[in-house]
Design a protein around this nucleic acid. Structure first.
Lengths: 169, 169
DNA sequence: GCTTATTGTTTTAAGCTTAAAATAATTGCA
DNA sequence: TGCAATTATTTTAAGCTTAAAACAATAAGC
């Protein structure tokens, strides 16, 4: 099978040679495929079943965990999207009656976004079904698979963060 | 620690009880976080380094593998995006001189999209750097990690497909 | 207090994305 | 042959997303 012998530098390490990173590339494409596949299906079901978009659902999920509401900029950090994006998203959710905007009593620049009672009730109903969809989508993974995958993704997350921010911060 | 005893049905299986799928939910959120984190960084670098968007890069990556071009609808399937989306994407890449549209000689409905020589050269340069970025982003995973993650993601992909399409097709 | 820097948000312009409807060409079949 | 169904693409309307610029209020340093 034409096994290639990789010459080693006698002193310390492998001889400099054009590195092949196709394996990492395939790993990335497979990760992206999984993510795209599942996300697409979740979007489709949210739309079909509740006539809601994934960004709206995600925003409400954050707010559901914060009984007293959240500042727009905190939402922005948590959701990893821009402030400008959230401005529009919140606009639409205010119109549909799911959330309300309040000026922060302690900082007149800041907006506090909160779920309305109707918004919270509607979100809880959606979240219940959503959890079952996810369980189904990952249904063929056994307990060990899930544990291993969690661990490897945690490691991937740290690796990516290191590459993005540098080792120091 | 208040260990909860789960009563078993004497006959066949565990007593019906509200199932908890929080673990799968956490798994999904972690997968999504990894994907979002890496994708965002790749977008940022493509923009900063080559002033190109990820969708354009992805489209050119598909075309680079097809020396004789590809039909728009095949591109659509491969890239998992809508036809309408591709129409606009191709428009912009035609304007920038990276790709050309040709009417298929065998089917007058179909458009064949191909890279121009300049488009191909530019893509190859970008792809070279891109591969290094990915290698860096996944850099803290060792060989076994990568193998295991590949396998688990393959299983996840099949599981999701099964949940989306049903076991039969 | 005054000034500068920072922080929080919105606006703008451009591009990405989709579903649904509209067009156009081909295929299948009676 | 002719017509119905299918396939390939584009158009449209709406929403998502971002970076950059603009604006407003607070915090920090002098």
């Amino acid at each position: 099978m034409d096994d290639q012998v990789i010459p080693l530098d006698a002193e310390t390490k492998a001889v400099e040679q054009p590195e092949d990173h196709r394996e990492e590339l395939r790993l990335w494409l497979r990760l992206l495929t999984c993510s795209t596949l599942i996300e697409g299906e979740v979007r489709r079901r949210l739309r079909e079943r509740f006539d809601v978009t994934l960004p709206r659902f995600d925003l409400m999920a954050q707010l559901d965990k914060a009984p007293d509401g959240m500042m727009l900029s905190d939402l922005s950090k948590r959701m990893m999207v821009s402030n400008g994006n959230l401005t529009g998203l919140v606009d639409r959710l205010v119109v549909s009656g799911h959330v309300v905007r309040t000026v922060s009593p302690t900082d007149r620049r800041a907006m506090v976004i909160s779920l309305t009672d109707e918004g919270r009730a509607e979100f809880r109903a959606m979240a219940g079904e959503h959890e079952h969809w996810i369980a189904d989508l990952f249904g063929d993974l056994n307990a060990k698979d899930r544990t291993d995958l969690m661990r490897l993704l945690a490691k991937t997350k740290l690796s990516a963060r290191r590459a993005i921010m540098g080792d120091d911060q």
